[in-house]
Amino acid sequence: MSFSPQSRIWIYQSNRKFSAAEESTILKKLEAFTNQWKAHGNELLAKAEIRYGFFIILTVDESQANVTGCSIDSSVRLIKEIEQEYNVDLFNRFNIAYKLNNEVIVNNKEDFETLVNIKQITPNTIVFNNMVQTLAELETKWEVPFQNSWHSTVFAHLL
């Protein structure tokens, strides 16, 4: 099934990496959800995936039916259930993910700031921009060098 580059996405970043068993169970739960996800009775063309063991990504192709507030609410409820069931934090926007030696690492804002300060995070360190909103942006603007990200404006005083 192919999704339009303009498909809407939502990224939920975990504060810790899911185990392989957790990831498998969560994916089954997400798949069951996306297979029956509806907006005002219309089936949504949707999919879910987990990338790097940290990121739950929901995708909806609105060329078939538009997402509604109610359908977004139902997805948020599911993510909150996963959060409680697996004791992870999926809504904390102050947790920042980056890559170090091709490993994804998630730190809180204070620890990340320290790493920028001591030059462990460089202008070329890959960071994750979870604010992207479309599939096209996910492919081109999600994993970006720190210097090209919103992070660099927040932590500019440290560079």
Rank of each mutant, 00 (worst) to 15 (best):
S2R: 15
Q6P: 01
S7W: 05
Y12P: 08
Y12F: 14
S14H: 04
S14K: 04
K17V: 10
S24K: 15
T25C: 08
K29S: 09
K29N: 13
L30H: 05
L30N: 07
L30I: 12
A32R: 14
N35R: 12
N35W: 02
N35H: 03
W37H: 05
K38D: 06
A39T: 07
A39W: 05
H40A: 13
G41R: 10
L44C: 02
L44T: 01
L44H: 04
L44V: 00
L45C: 08
I50T: 03
I50D: 00
I50R: 05
R51V: 07
R51F: 04
G53C: 10
F54E: 04
F55C: 06
I56E: 04
I56T: 04
I57V: 14
V60N: 10
V60H: 04
D61S: 01
D61H: 02
A65F: 06
A65P: 06
N66F: 10
V67S: 13
G69I: 03
I72F: 09
D73T: 02
S75Q: 08
S75H: 03
S75F: 00
L78Q: 03
I79Q: 03
I79T: 02
E83M: 08
N87T: 12
V88Y: 07
D89S: 11
D89P: 00
F91N: 07
N92D: 15
I96T: 09
I96R: 10
A97Q: 06
Y98A: 05
L100V: 12
L100H: 13
N101E: 13
N102R: 10
N102I: 01
E103H: 12
V104P: 06
I105T: 08
N107Q: 14
N107W: 04
N108S: 05
K109A: 01
E110W: 01
E113L: 08
T114Y: 10
T114E: 12
T114S: 13
L115I: 02
V116R: 11
I118F: 01
K119L: 00
Q120R: 14
I121M: 01
T122N: 05
P123M: 04
V127T: 09
N129C: 02
N130Y: 07
M131P: 00
Q133Y: 09
T134N: 11
L135T: 03
L135A: 05
L135R: 07
E139K: 15
T140R: 13
K141P: 02
K141S: 15
K141L: 14
K141N: 15
E143W: 01
P145E: 06
Q147V: 11
S149I: 02
W150H: 12
H151P: 00
F155T: 00
F155C: 03
A156H: 09
H157D: 14
H157Q: 10
L158A: 02
L159W: 14
